[in-house]
């Protein structure tokens, strides 16, 4: 986007204005995510920068909200922080419970969505697949249909078959919501897949199972892992279905946050938000790394 030497003054002005506009839009995109990080270290229960924070006075900062995340819901939060304190926190603290639930539900729904989704993507990317377009449309639709409709439907259905208020129900619901992301990512990886490799493997005497695990799988693995990470994030971030089909026992982090935001919002929410931002940065880095690796492996990218 370099400006040519012969650009007129007006064009120069426009060019720099344009860059400023873009910078502002990037600021709009990123500032709301980064702003919660310093605010979560606020010593006061406010959502704004206090004078002490602005003058970088260490007294203006504290980790009390992170501490609250640990102690909230504990039997004896004031006790000395020895082994029994930590085991109390592990067993009773509300946010730790929610985190455990989030990870359990996220893990199993990701496995379910990834296994089923990868198999289906393999079928869908074969040229001889019948009704490809219609089936693809059905499988992607959980991403498009408004979440409240999905949650409403699942509430009635799961109540009638006895899956409501159970881990299995939430896991199945979250897997359904994660499937479109797995399908999209894995089929995108398979677009550049060279099918002569599978034929070569077959002609060398490998049966379909060996071909899958020794030839196809290593090549599409980056795409599968990206899809799995997407599915995990979808489940990790999902709140509406949890609101409708889960019970108190299946409280997840987003559900706990939802309560916090609706009832009384405290900087403890910002501490959770900061931790979640860190998680999303880690996930994004992984996915970008995998994407580049996959592109390199398939020779799509210059570097």
């Amino acid at each position: 986007m370099a400006l040519p030497k012969h650009a007129s003054p007006l064009e120069r002005i426009w060019h720099y204005t344009y860059l400023v506009i873009c910078a502002l839009i990037f600021l709009f995109l990123i500032a709301p995510i980064l702003i919660v990080i310093p605010l979560s270290f606020n010593a006061e229960p406010y959502f704004t920068f206090t004078d002490k924070m602005l003058s970088f006075d260490p007294e203006g900062y504290s980790t009390r909200w992170y501490d609250l995340l640990l102690t909230f819901g504990m039997n004896a939060p004031g006790a000395e922080r020895d082994f029994s304190w930590w085991s109390d926190a592990w067993a009773n603290a509300a946010w730790i419970k929610a985190a455990k639930n989030s990870v359990i539900i996220g893990f199993f729904s990701t496995i379910l969505a990834t296994v089923l989704g990868t198999l289906a993507a393999l079928g869908l990317s074969r040229p001889e697949m019948p009704y490809r377009r219609a089936i693809m449309a059905i499988l992607i639709s959980p991403m498009i249909v408004p979440i409240i409709i999905v949650a409403t439907g699942m509430f009635f259905f799961y109540s009638s078959v006895g899956l409501a208020n159970s881990y299995l129900g939430v896991i199945m619901a979250h897997a359904t919501l994660g499937i479109p992301f797995v399908i999209i990512t894995v089929t995108a990886t398979l677009v550049g897949f060279d099918h002569s490799l599978t034929r070569a493997s077959a002609s060398l005497g490998a049966n379909p199972t060996t071909t899958f695990f020794r030839v196809i799988m290593p090549l599409i693995l980056p795409g599968v892992i990206s899809g799995a990470l997407f599915a995990f994030v979808v489940s990790f971030d999902e709140v509406v279905v949890v609101l409708f089909v889960a019970d108190f026992d299946q409280q997840t982090i987003p559900r706990q946050m939802w309560n916090g935001i609706r009832e009384q919002i405290s900087p403890a929410i910002l501490a959770v938000a900061t931790l979640l931002v860190v998680v999303s940065i880690a996930l994004l880095t992984t996915v970008e790394f995998l994407r580049r690796r996959s592109e390199k492996m398939r020779g799509l990218s210059p570097g």
Binding site: V36, F236, W258, I261, I265, A273, L276, V277, S280, L283
Partner: peptide
């Protein structure tokens, strides 16, 4: 990054 960040975080 916004795309990967929790919806509730962004709303908060």
């Amino acid at each position: 990054l916004p795309f990967w960040t929790s919806l509730l975080v962004r709303t908060t």
